[in-house]
């Protein structure tokens, strides 16, 4: 999950680009990127990520 403090204009495209970049560094392994930003809904999956995720 990527936490942003400013609203993001293209959240889906940004998440897809980030996932592609991370996937490349992991030899093409499948990666999902979840965004948290002031203009996006806060969903249960965000709470799980905040609670159980590991800070990188």
């Amino acid at each position: 999950m990527l936490e942003l403090t400013e609203p993001v204009d293209n959240p889906a495209l940004l998440a897809a680009r980030m996932a592609a970049q991370v996937s490349r560094t992991m030899s093409g392994r499948r990666v999902d990127v979840l965004l948290s930003a002031p203009n996006l809904m806060r969903l249960p999956i965000h709470d799980i990520a905040f609670k159980e995720g590991t800070l990188l």
Partner: peptide
Amino acid sequence: TMRNLRNQMIHEYVEDPVV
């Protein structure tokens, strides 16, 4: 990137209309 966009296009489980 195109490939990673696909999961975010499925309206039944993408709950945020902005995304």
